[in-house]
């Protein structure tokens, strides 16, 4: 039994002369949510498609649950669930028929409770073409998990969904993980990755740019904390003083803004300045760098 559900070593994928993925290495542990992050054209989809067995790697080695995703695709079918980014279903197929249809090909009995759990209980007789985008996403997820797979691969699962539906799907993903399912997640939504993922891999121009937990990734960057402050008399806005270990950013909507590499020292000096000037705090916000900021930093650095 392997410790890794997905193990990628020296994986390269080419399309003609263009190299989509170049000697990629990463592995994903059992029971974790692993996020694959990257700008458009970074090689995420090529990587996922090779892991899903939809395409062959040109060189290197990919193993999924210890098996070859192309050669052993039949064996993996029952152990892996995939939600494609653009998951087409025959428009005339009802939700109930879709669950039955794909379950039979996987060699299992249809699991209608997966759809009920995803809020499709009342839509079982509705044809796929009549479902809303959110419902189609839910159905795609139901189809991916109805056979209780060890590994679920989700490609942009919440793209184009409203906030409420996205939150519900996040809760289901967290529930799956709590049940021991490993989840490989490709997303453009950094907040989603930060919220859900145990570890993330940033891919830029087909190469690994960074890897680690969202917290590790954010702390590896410039790591500067953002401080925004609004005061009663607006003294900071008028005087625009500088404070130690910080860089002043343009003011915005009545807030004076700083980016600090040592927030404790900056805040102490700022509070002392306010006390000396007789001003008072209306609102003070201290924000650590987000994964999105770190992601942009990595992408820009690679691009330059």
């Amino acid at each position: 039994m392997t410790d890794h559900v997905v193990n990628v070593r020296g994986f390269t994928k080419r399309y003609g002369n263009a190299i989509a993925v170049d000697r990629m290495d990463f592995s994903m542990g059992r029971g974790e949510i692993f996020a694959l992050l990257g700008p458009n054209g970074a090689g995420k989809t090529s990587t996922l498609e090779c892991i899903e067995g939809l395409r062959r790697a040109d060189s290197g080695n990919i193993s999924v649950l210890g098996l070859d995703p192309v050669r052993d695709s039949r064996r993996l079918m029952r152990r892996v669930g995939v939600q494609l980014q653009a998951q087409g279903l025959p428009g005339a197929m009802t939700v109930r028929e879709a669950l039955g249809f794909f379950a039979r090909y996987r060699g299992i009995a249809p699991n209608y409770s997966a759809a009920e759990r995803l809020g499709l209980g009342g839509r079982m007789g509705v044809q796929a073409s009549s479902l809303s985008t959110g419902q189609q996403r839910r159905l795609a997820l139901a189809l991916a998990i109805q056979h209780d797979p060890e590994l679920v691969i989700l490609d942009e699962p919440t793209a184009g969904l409203d906030v409420e539906t996205r939150d519900e799907l996040h809760a289901i993903v967290a529930e799956l993980r709590a049940g021991g399912t490993s989840i490989l997640l490709a997303t453009h939504d950094m907040a989603e990755a930060e919220k859900l993922a145990d570890r993330a891999l940033v891919v830029v121009e087909g190469r690994k740019a960074a890897e680690g937990s969202p917290r590790e990734l954010t702390s590896q960057g410039e790591g500067r904390t953002r401080i925004s402050i609004s005061t009663a008399r607006g003294g900071l806005l008028r005087v625009e003083p500088d404070f130690p270990h910080s860089e002043r950013l343009p003011s915005e909507e009545g807030y004076c803004r700083y980016r600090s590499s040592k927030p404790a020292a900056t805040l102490s000096a700022l509070l002392a300045w306010l006390q000396d000037s007789g001003d008072d705090i209306v609102d003070l916000r201290v924000e650590r760098p987000s994964l999105e900021e770190r992601f942009l930093e990595i992408v820009r650095r690679k691009a330059s």
Binding site: E52, G53, L84, G88, P90, Y105, G107, L143
Partner: peptide, 16 residues
């Protein structure tokens, strides 16, 4: 149309 709209890919990942 099924090929273009991703239906056949859905079939493939489900073992059809």
């Amino acid at each position: 149309t099924a090929r273009e709209s991703g239906v056949l890919r859905s079939y493939r990942i489900s073992g059809v």
